[in-house]
Design a protein around this nucleic acid. Sequence first.
DNA 1: TGATAAGTGAGAAGCGTTCTCACTTTCTGT
DNA 2: ACAGAAAGTGAGAACGCTTCTCACTTATCA
Lengths: 162, 162
Amino acid sequence: MAQARQPHDLLAASSVRPSPHWPDAAKALYGPARMSAQRALIAEEVMAFPGAFTAEDLHRTVGRRAEGVGLATVYRALAAMQEAGAIASVGERDGSALLARCGRDDHHHHLVCTTCGTVVGVECPLDHAALAAATREGHLVTSHEITLYGVCAVCRDQKDAG
Amino acid sequence: MAQARQPHDLLAASSVRPSPHWPDAAKALYGPARMSAQRALIAEEVMAFPGAFTAEDLHRTVGRRAEGVGLATVYRALAAMQEAGAIASVGERDGSALLARCGRDDHHHHLVCTTCGTVVGVECPLDHAALAAATREGHLVTSHEITLYGVCAVCRDQKDAG
DNA sequence: TGATAAGTGAGAAGCGTTCTCACTTTCTGT
DNA sequence: ACAGAAAGTGAGAACGCTTCTCACTTATCA
């Protein structure tokens, strides 16, 4: 029992070739960090998510394709992706951090769909005139955190249709 | 030993009379919830804080005036105040929730001073025209979370002076 | 004043996240 | 192609914040 730990099982589960030939799409998520079969698989699952997810969510979906991928490994992979700017923290749900794939590197924020969990990037909706009011009172605003919640276009359509 | 638990010690520490005569200012923070010597003391310390604080911060300052006030009591008091709308969660610091006294009941947000921790209420700086862009793409924005970070007027003055 | 519902303190428990350790794997330089 | 260094891995322990539990005390209202 517990024959476990056979990386080739993982490789078989993903559409991946051995050693230095990791899929570019997966590799891109990690920036300069080193790759592994586990990370390739995790990257695929991250890209498969339509919207925001928690570490636990991801660990579960990865677990469906390969057993024995540790939760710590998922956390480490997520940290690497965040470092590389491939994913972003977009809030929290029930005490767990909500993450989402995010290719944009311009200044923007996220709209989290409360129906399906999808995350949409949106322009910064700050009114600089309104911000000036704070400046007028003597304060200096250097940064901000914004998360929008609502219903995404797809869910609105379904609601209208159904 | 452990004579402990003598509410009158707590009463002596705060400027508070027995039983039904709690200071209105303190009582107001809890809304309809029941009062106690501990809660009166906690309320005083909350009002004494110039800005944002963590549960731990509060427990420490309360501990300076009266021993034996449990951490759980502080958390319960904070929950009651939040329920009553007297304080608000304004972000987090090192994994702990940041809370701040907040009398306003209109729609507004908070500017957290990164120098001194003071929290200032500010008008909602959302640009409704910019928000309309999201609507144009089919999304419906129902709510939002905004926290501004920067330097408050007092700290700016000190910086200019010093 | 007495009944009862709520608050309290101490510590256990819960939960998400990070760390540790021994081991495996990738990657770089030759 | 290969050896060695550096980084990743899995399992579970540890951690920090927060909540819960339990027996007891206290405020509040009839």
